[in-house]
């Protein structure tokens, strides 16, 4: 999986992770994948909902030692 952009929101509180993800998304072309990193415990619910509403695709997400990584493909 080729990642075009990494958005690091580790340590940032709500609403910054999705605000940063949204800003980064506007700089991507359709089909490109962005990786978003977050340490917010609500991140799984937040990103699942945000990706669904904004019409993009959540390719997968994983958690490692309290850091969540989301891979979002721009539609």
């Amino acid at each position: 999986m080729e990642i075009s952009m990494v958005v690091d929101t580790k340590g940032l509180a709500c609403p910054m992770p999705i605000v940063k993800a949204k800003k980064a998304m506007s700089g991507l072309n359709a089909g490109q994948i962005m990786q978003v990193l977050s340490t917010d415990k609500g991140a799984v619910n937040d990103f699942t909902a945000w990706v669904k509403q904004t019409g993009h695709e959540l390719v997968r997400h994983e958690e490692d030692g309290g850091v969540y990584a989301f891979y979002v493909r721009k539609v």
Binding site: C14, P15, I18, V19, A21, K22, W50, Q53, T54
Partner: peptide
């Protein structure tokens, strides 16, 4: 408001 703006 900021969250909603990020929701387009």
């Amino acid at each position: 408001a900021n969250g909603a703006a990020a929701y387009d």
